[in-house]
Design a protein around this nucleic acid. Sequence first.
DNA 1: TCGGGTTGTGCACACGTGTGAATAATGCAA
DNA 2: TTGCATTATTCACACGTGTGCACAACCCGA
Lengths: 334, 334
Amino acid sequence: MERDGKRVRSFEVAELAQISRSTVSRALAGDPRISEATRTRVLAAAAELGYQPNLIARSLKNQSTGIVGVVVTDLNNPYHAHALQLLIEKMGTRRMAPLVFVGNTAEGAERAIERLMSYQVDAVIALAAPFRHQIINACLAGSKPLVLMNRYDGSEPVSAVGGDSFAAGVAVADHLVARGAKRFAFFGGEDNTTISREREQGFSLRLKHHGHGIDIAMASRYAYEPAFETAHEILRQKPDAVFCANDTLAVALMDAARPMHGTSGMPFVVGYDNSALAAWPIYNLTSVDQNLEEMTTQTVDIARALASEPSRPPVRLTIEPFLVERGSTLPRNL
Amino acid sequence: MERDGKRVRSFEVAELAQISRSTVSRALAGDPRISEATRTRVLAAAAELGYQPNLIARSLKNQSTGIVGVVVTDLNNPYHAHALQLLIEKMGTRRMAPLVFVGNTAEGAERAIERLMSYQVDAVIALAAPFRHQIINACLAGSKPLVLMNRYDGSEPVSAVGGDSFAAGVAVADHLVARGAKRFAFFGGEDNTTISREREQGFSLRLKHHGHGIDIAMASRYAYEPAFETAHEILRQKPDAVFCANDTLAVALMDAARPMHGTSGMPFVVGYDNSALAAWPIYNLTSVDQNLEEMTTQTVDIARALASEPSRPPVRLTIEPFLVERGSTLPRNL
DNA sequence: TCGGGTTGTGCACACGTGTGAATAATGCAA
DNA sequence: TTGCATTATTCACACGTGTGCACAACCCGA
């Protein structure tokens, strides 16, 4: 396999197959000019020595590394963690390698992106990055393709893949109205992110269409404790149904409601992200699934396409979410 | 900054500074043979052009990439996600770049590690990897330093950093005995992982020392739903105190216990990992903190040391965990 | 002017690969 | 055998960097 810790180079393979180094390269690349006989001989030699090409050298020559930079903010958010895992898996299938950086401050993102550029990444994927502008500028300056996943406000000339938050809001409104709810609350997050606002708008518009409206609207940070506090204020106003911008918010609300209402008198609750929590028996939470599977697939494919053809114009894609109905919105007598 | 999409090379800097390329390289590297005058001239030119060295080329020349492979299994486990985030952050501080792969099957791990080797990583970090053997063999074959984090059974000649599960079990036993518990349960995980067993042993031995023992011992997979089922069986046997191998198990147990006991009659519960869940008000769970901060720091430092000096013998390190006391073990009348 | 030390730079090679152009080998018709 | 076309292989360079060694420049004392 290896000789005293040094990796085998294509030269050794050539030597063993009694042939020149270039022929080895072409044989492994499947160049049709190489005869079938020599090709099999080369393959045998390569297998015998356990030859694996040095991708660093190849990258230098090809001006393309196969490495994609991934910038992420907070892996403690299970939604981000799950998205990252899917991204990595998809990339593996497509022979791309993810160089991951955490940029949870503006300077952090700045530094991360600079290091990525130094490593000559073929493209950059930014996952729900609050520090878009630094990233966008750096990528434009280095003329590297950039794909924003799940955070895009339409103002910048880069590729982006996102979920249709508006449509999700509409679907939730329909669902809750069908359940017979009359008094609606929206529990938003993170001082009115674009995304949280879109969800609220879809919800609100559709409720109006049904002759209702949002009676209670509050927001808190996307963390359990502040949400738990805010939840009490919402509940004090006795809503029939609460649409939460996030599963964490929803779960905090249910925990806050349980001692007050018991299980029977609890309002309908709908979350967002369909995270693992939502499926837990005590919550059994109806939640909007963003279809991360599809979203990550598209993101990776776009990144790959742009990497191989950098002159392409930016692509924008919207993935349709779907509602996963569970116990928290089962029909009951309100 | 850039010229028509091509990165600036050191040649351009040399040209602008009216000087040879080698001098540029030396000036930027801080070679003392370069006069102060030319150095400042070079720095100015580099800054003006926004020069960033091409790390791929440098890697090829230096036979060292600064890239460390990280193999992880399941980012949906918040504990792993958190660990990965910390690893990435520490690596950033030390000018290392993480190439992350998910290996959640034996072949997956195999393929992941091969790709890492092709990218000439300086070292590999495996995070709680169940497929150790594939990884270990690949690293030995490629003679790349490997650091196992948080999973090591003492049988392999590689570096490893882990938590002192045994000591944790002891500390938990002391704590629960001090609270006056008499009837103890151990809620294990994942068909008796090494780690789960060590925790149980420490717990058991120390209980014996206090004149008690483990009265109930059960296990389930590390996921909420199976744990929720198993929890009922444990509770049916009326323990005073339950030590769970994992916060997820602990939380499932508390959820199962709440309808049966109410909050007052609930047994003492101790979890493991001190994850975000543990701090949620409804759980308020006493939990063992593995000191991931320290563990990841040490892991990264060891990886770096081994990368720069590959002949070093493997290092093994044990990090002391500590108990975070919360409401689930507050003194009460049993 | 010369010799010898010190200091600052430049030349040229190496890292391992891919690839265009040149060359050798082969086949076939004349 | 020679000429030409086709095929299989090799030569040599490029990618962008770091660095050993040679070399130029300079100062200073003789």
